[in-house]
Design a protein around this nucleic acid. Structure first.
Lengths: 112, 112
DNA sequence: CACTTAAGTTCCTATTTGGAACTTAGGGCA
DNA sequence: TGCCCTAAGTTCCAAATAGGAACTTAAGTG
């Protein structure tokens, strides 16, 4: 089964995953909650390829989670901002953050 | 950048995603919370291939989110149960469920 | 004119998935 | 004994997706 077929699943978790159940998509949303809104910011921050960011932003806009807004005419430039639907996703990211903080501490060799 | 490289990321959300930021992994966890524990149950319930389920279960066990327990000797058979670390992931799934329920209703053509 | 920024797109290779069949280790029963 | 069944995986190959780097478009800067 392809994951795109999950969108009509009986389970709301599965339907949610069909839309945002992808690492880069969720990282983009994290960045939005951190105040980012531009293409190159997402590329730099997530480390994903431009190709992927382009694709994921398109899907998020189609899904009504982000909105594309022009912030400059002549060079036409757009930024991506969370819609209300997108804003309401924050509890999920908070839950991920809390779980990660508790269970996946960074154990950097203190390179002194 | 490969997503596996996210595990040392400064951001706890990214570290969490490096582990469970994948559709099938999260669906397996959903199933665990619904009381499932066996390989074929995960296969049937998620619709993912046996190959994928096998791979994801391995990673979840390695990460200490699930535990493999023998429920039968002679035919050796194992089941997968949530550890405490895994149990504590429930708020994230609840958040996904709530968001999906609110924003992604199933609109089935009532096939009467 | 040459350089820079921002937002993408294109191209090609490499990795991951999807699907179906095969394996291993017994159990049931005729 | 022989045949089919279950459960948990593994293997194989074709198809889809991702990674990396360069290219494009449209302007602004010195």
């Amino acid at each position: 089964m392809k994951w795109t077929e999950l969108d009509e699943n009986w389970c709301p978790v599965a339907r949610t995953l069909s839309l945002v159940g992808d690492r880069w998509t969720l990282l983009i949303l994290r960045d939005c909650f951190l105040g980012m809104s531009r293409f190159d910011q997402f590329v730099a921050s997530t480390g994903a390829t431009r190709h992927l960011i382009s694709d994921r932003l398109k899907r998020l806009v189609e899904a009504g989670i982000l909105e594309k807004q022009a912030y400059s005419e002549r060079p036409k430039r757009y930024e991506y901002v969370l819609t209300e639907k997108g804003q309401e996703f924050s509890p999920a990211l908070m839950a991920f953050r809390d779980w990660g903080k508790k269970h996946l501490p960074v154990r950097r060799a203190s390179n002194a």
